[in-house]
Design a binder for these strands. Structure first.
Lengths: 246, 246
DNA sequence: TCAAAAGTGTTCCGAATACACCCATGC
DNA sequence: GCATGGGTGTATTCGGAACACTTTTGA
């Protein structure tokens, strides 16, 4: 196998192996949450291949660029989003996944407070839109598979990372937090028990504010105590909110 | 960025972008367990770069080969191990991680019953050896970083996959199982509680055999009930043996 | 009979569960 | 008042933690 490598000569006279003809790309699964829906950010491609299709924001990595940097800059280029923390979750490298040649793609996911970010289509994205993860359009390449794996990763990450606070706006009610977990995991919790458990973690700071413009008793607003989360995490705390479904 | 792509012409007149000059490789972190030690399989490289260094078994992927296939065939080529289930855990793609050019590597890990497999060095592996994960030599490339991430992945996977049964021989005692978990996680369990928990899962079948050639009361031998594991897993069961350290 | 490890039983405690119930607001 | 969702309290159950204890073997 490696004994039979063909060598090619590039324009600038650098020899390289046959194997050095891979493309490498990154694809970003950006999750948001609004009105009871877990959403993902997709772009409509305005370039071949798959022109006109919906796709994950992604692009080829350039030769002198680290993967994390590529993920962030691609996302910025296509959507305007900036300084998003992204976590790698899987690499997809089937032989025929890309029509232009052998391209492996490293998939990242991230969680954003969608109220804080206002994606704007640019580069070869003709439009951009949040989609409910239960109502996805057809996707370019193997992006359906990537996205599905990303969703499973998100659901699993609930156990060791405070996804609730990453997806909700700065101020939120306990019911909103509960609704988010229910949407993520697909089942319901018992309200009193959920509240007890979440408050028992001491990760929430109660604000002296309440909801406004609601036609029922207004709920208290809370915010996430990130400092406390960090110190707990460093001691080996795992954020586990797995209550029984109700 | 992508607007300024240079195109190269290969020998057989196929144009390809500058970005299509990546190398892609796979590296395998093979875990075994013996005599209280969690071990990993390393090869001594008999080829440049890093000739003479210890390294993870790995190689460039060829253009017409899927990643999973590459991982298995590379491992087979270097060590003789065959049909090992491997799971991808991370891709490493720093710009300068490989001296020969831009090579991203997809890392896989697997768990083997080391008593069943007898690795034999071949290809560019001049020797091959199990190393206790607490006493690792210097490693080629960024393999130290890869291996450390692999170890963390293994420790985390304890929670959702029956690593105990994948690493131990077919027949084992409960004390052996406990010792394995203690070695993996780095702390001790209370014996009665460990036994209760593990037996309570009904994943073990008690055999009508006992240890031999021991100078104390011989322990019963058990085997893993894989069928039962599968049916439980499909119902959403997570294998969680996290007891408090003693 | 002793050492060493196998193996069992029991109490205690805290956290999850399954509820019932009260509270504040707009209409 | 009443509908609606916010918010609280409590008895019960279950499983983990702690620890004492018995059993079986070889030497």
């Amino acid at each position: 196998m490696s004994e039979s490598n063909k060598y090619f000569i590039s324009e600038n006279n650098v020899p390289f192996k046959q194997e050095f003809q891979f493309g490498l790309s990154v694809d970003c699964v950006v999750f948001g949450y609004q009105e009871g829906q877990v959403r993902v950010l997709l772009i409509e491609r305005n370039a071949d291949p798959y022109k006109g299709s919906w796709a994950l924001p992604g692009d080829l990595v350039s030769l002198n660029e680290d993967l994390e940097h590529a993920a962030n800059s691609v996302l910025n280029k296509l959507t305007g989003l900036k300084d998003i923390f992204m976590e790698q979750f899987h690499t997809f490298g089937s032989v025929n996944r890309h029509p232009a040649g052998r391209v492996a793609t490293v998939a990242y996911y991230s969680l954003v407070k969608s109220s804080n970010y206002h994606p704007v289509a640019s580069a070869w994205a003709s439009s951009i839109q949040w989609f409910d993860i239960r109502e996805l359009p057809d996707l370019a390449f193997d992006h359906k598979v990537i996205l599905e794996k990303g969703i499973r990763t998100l659901q699993r990450s609930v156990q060791y990372r405070p996804v609730g606070f990453e997806l909700l706006p700065l101020k939120f009610t306990l019911s909103e937090l509960q609704a988010l977990y229910e949407a993520l995991l697909g089942f319901k919790f018992d309200k009193p028990n959920f509240r007890k458990k979440i408050l028992g973690m001491n990760l929430l700071t109660s604000l002296d504010e309440v909801q406004e413009n609601v036609w029922h008793r207004p709920a208290k607003l809370y915010k996430f105590d990130e400092g406390r989360y960090r110190s707990l995490r460093d001691v080996g705390f795992t954020f586990d909110i797995t209550l029984k479904s109700s």
